[in-house]
């Protein structure tokens, strides 16, 4: 039976891991390769690296780091942040990334999703969507969540699925960094809207939040950063608890 996935997210800036509270106010949480290896050994199912400097400051994602991670860990990982061209994606995949996340570049030029899935297969194209609920409507945001657009989360998700996305990584900006739980009703609606896997992001604070995101939120995978980086939740403990809640996970 297919297991629900637990995905630590490593936000990368200048080759170091950081985690923003509501995307700002960065705190250093270590060396990405060492963290990746530790997470793989502790039962993480997958990893996501987001180069947050790439979008905010136009820095390219570090290929060396990707190669280094691929060399040392034996679970899949996704790299995103500032990815905007086919050549850029090819370089990441050739360096050992299993999947590549695109976000702002897909909003600016949606055909990019078609081009990438045609060239590399939809299985390795993750479309990351940052959205914020404003007056009851979920609006997609650009550039690390700093610029609002008119795009509706659910319409955009449907569009990227049609264009060839293999997976959606949805970050609720209302929930991100505040540790009060995931955006479960939006997540459940997203799962009904599209027929590709959904990674839930933003809001993890307790083990119960993970139980809720898989039951109420119907997510296929749950992503978190600070609760893992600062040791507030150990992945082994989390998985034991999920299993005792009858959620299928890999132990």
């Amino acid at each position: 039976m297919l297991a629900k996935r637990i995905i630590p997210c490593l936000d990368i800036k200048n080759g170091r891991t950081v985690k923003g509270v509501n995307f700002l106010n960065l705190r250093d949480a270590g060396d990405p390769v060492a963290l990746a290896k530790q997470y793989a050994e502790n039962g993480a199912d997958e990893l996501v690296f987001l180069d947050i400097s790439a979008t905010l400051e136009s820095r390219s994602t570090t290929i060396d780091m990707v190669r280094n991670v691929a060399e040392h860990i034996d679970i899949p990982f996704t790299v995103g942040g500032g990815v905007s061209t086919k050549d850029g994606v090819e370089l990441l995949l050739k360096s050992g990334a299993d999947k590549v996340g695109v976000n702002s570049a897909a909003i600016k030029r949606p055909e990019l999703v078609n081009e990438l899935s045609k060239a590399f297969g939809n299985q390795c194209i993750v479309v990351a969507i940052d959205a914020k609920q404003v007056d009851g409507k979920w609006l997609v945001h650009l550039a690390g969540g700093t610029i609002p657009t008119d795009l509706d989360l659910f319409e955009w998700a449907k569009e990227v699925e049609t264009r060839g996305a293999g997976e959606i990584l949805f970050t609720s900006m209302n929930n991100d960094g505040v540790k009060t739980g995931f955006a479960n009703s939006a997540l459940a609606q997203l799962s009904e809207t599209v027929n590709i896997p959904i990674i839930a992001s933003g809001g993890a604070g307790t083990i119960q939040h993970f139980v809720d995101v898989f039951t109420e939120g119907k997510a296929d995978a749950a992503l978190a950063a600070s609760v893992f980086h600062f040791g507030e939740i150990a992945i082994n403990d989390l998985k034991q608890e999920l299993q005792s809640n009858k959620i299928n996970i890999r132990l």
Binding site: K4, D45, E46, P197, D220
Partner: peptide, 27 residues
């Protein structure tokens, strides 16, 4: 079902030297 089939799934009925020392229901 959601397509692609993505993630960790179990394997069963293992019948070859290729799968030696890999337990049934491994992910």
């Amino acid at each position: 079902v959601k397509v692609p089939h993505m993630g960790w799934n179990t394997i069963q009925n293992l019948q070859s030297g290729l799968l030696k020392n890999i337990p049934e229901e491994s992910y």
